[in-house]
Design a protein around this nucleic acid. Sequence first.
DNA 1: TTTAGTGGCTAAAGCGCATTAGGGTCACCG
DNA 2: CGGTGACCCTAATGCGCTTTAGCCACTAAA
Lengths: 348, 348
Amino acid sequence: MSGKRSPARRPTMKDIARHAGVSQSAVSFALNGRPGVSEDTRDRVRQVAEELGWRPSTAARALSGEGAATVGFVLARPADTLGVDSFFLQLVSGIQEVLAERHLGLLFQVVEDVADECAVYRRWWAEHRVDGVLVVDPRTDDPRPDLLDGLGLPAVVIGGAPDVRHPGLSTVWADDAGAMASVVDGLHALGHRRIVHIAGLPGLAHTERRVRTLRAEAERRGLPEVRSVTTDYSDAAGAAVTRRVLRGDAPPTALIYDNDVMAVAGAAAAAELGFAVPADVSVVSWEDSALCRMVKPWLSALSRDSVEFGRTAARELTALLDGGPARAVRVPVPRLTERGSTGAARDV
Amino acid sequence: MSGKRSPARRPTMKDIARHAGVSQSAVSFALNGRPGVSEDTRDRVRQVAEELGWRPSTAARALSGEGAATVGFVLARPADTLGVDSFFLQLVSGIQEVLAERHLGLLFQVVEDVADECAVYRRWWAEHRVDGVLVVDPRTDDPRPDLLDGLGLPAVVIGGAPDVRHPGLSTVWADDAGAMASVVDGLHALGHRRIVHIAGLPGLAHTERRVRTLRAEAERRGLPEVRSVTTDYSDAAGAAVTRRVLRGDAPPTALIYDNDVMAVAGAAAAAELGFAVPADVSVVSWEDSALCRMVKPWLSALSRDSVEFGRTAARELTALLDGGPARAVRVPVPRLTERGSTGAARDV
DNA sequence: TTTAGTGGCTAAAGCGCATTAGGGTCACCG
DNA sequence: CGGTGACCCTAATGCGCTTTAGCCACTAAA
């Protein structure tokens, strides 16, 4: 009835104090569970706050030293690269789940490269915008841990190996090395001797881990014709590299792709070249998603629970925000879901 | 040398004032381009601020009435639904581009349904967290415009039709009706008479628009065997519906899918059933992405520039934040990129 | 009876900024 | 030579919250 045309005013603690007939400080004590008010008053205040639909102004909270109730997440990828990638949305969705419970906001930003990412961290810190950040795509020789350490910004590195040089940062990681070893193991058992690993971006920590492990495994088994090729993760690169290696002399009999997009594109490229999957060449995707079940044959893939990965990372960050110690948490080794794209190596 | 172990302190305007030998107010005037200081002083203050790496505390800014310098974006989708969807990441990336220029943050949240989404808006508003929001997936009978209007929270609805009932909200929309008409036109010209539209979620405004238009076009041309089937956008649903309609009597000769994921899954399902694409059945995807070029034949698709779509939406929102009037902006009609999946209808 | 607590509350200060109301100083006009 | 702006600048206030200091009444101990 009252013509609610003018945008409603936000209720403040002052309003609550007035309605409840107490001082602002009493309201603050009551609402924050601090001693200094009787249970009676506390209940009354709580009730009034509820009725008024009061919520603490994050700005005011942040200003009086309580932190911004927000964590940051920066994705450093050129716009066109983040096309068909299920990993990040799932990761974020898991992160959200945990953050939402604690009413923590997620400040999200997409930038071009790591330098820009660092700039964003500096800005966020100076602007007092976030209490902590989640860092993805760790690199070999990464400037971010040093920066965040210096700023004193709590952070969880997602996908990096435990970093002894930065005891302030938590790490959540998957055992790529172990997974790679087991994949090579499986392929070797199937008779594969010539294996090419179509890797992701060079410089990324997990790319390097996989590449190193593959090389080590190959040496251990005495397989000279096993190697990695780095790419930019795009479908185009996946297809291009596939064509190149299959056209060479003594083409590989097994291909390991670092993501689903390249695996699908690569499998298609192989088929075009007349290589049957898996009769002529086996294909493994290091990322499972609906994509892997959209092509014929379905692609064998390493599955990991990206949503849970996100949850774990967020939990580590909240623990850090609560003053807990930094930790290195390993999530379960991704396991290979065998589908139709892997089989015994053709006799050479 | 000075043992920078303790996390650096954020410089404040007080620090600048001290270094520059002026009052805080002078600093404020200087830094915000307000009159009241000489150009000399202004430059000096700017320089000091620069040296100290000062950035305004958003908390303090927000508290003194300047807004939170942040806009919100809520995605109401169950976690497992947001798998292989290139649209949102691209949209967000476009949004970011515009927001970053103005140093506006993007608060991002994933929730289960629209009710939760509304709760998030209320909370954000009460907590003074955002200055405006971007709303996606508008529905028929949507509670959000009313809510946002009531809260006085500036908002841009992405993908909705212009809404005369909420003159406070801007709208950025694509002409689905026109696009649908032109697709039907093209298929009709190729001889197709039995067309099935495998649509997205019922209740979504653009789904309804497309469904309505398709029906109208069919009636206009006297095609009784043209219809829409709604789904949940998943690959599974796309494949299932495809199988169902192709197995029926008088199967359709053309299929229009509301997204790329369903189109690819559907095309695969058709192939499995022995329907050659496009000889037996033509396939059109209402979303273009790398996915469409990962299958054989490549899928004809309606391409729109999602990144630009995001930019446009963000620009409208910033205009709104600047006090500009609400507008309804139409982005270019998506155009059909003809690829190998569409062809003349087989003689019936 | 005084003294020391103690529980329940209020007043006041401070966080970092924007903004309003003045307070000097100088040049210019009458 | 006093008056009047214009120009630069400072002091002080408020935004909504947390927190410290302190007040008052009442009880328990000395």
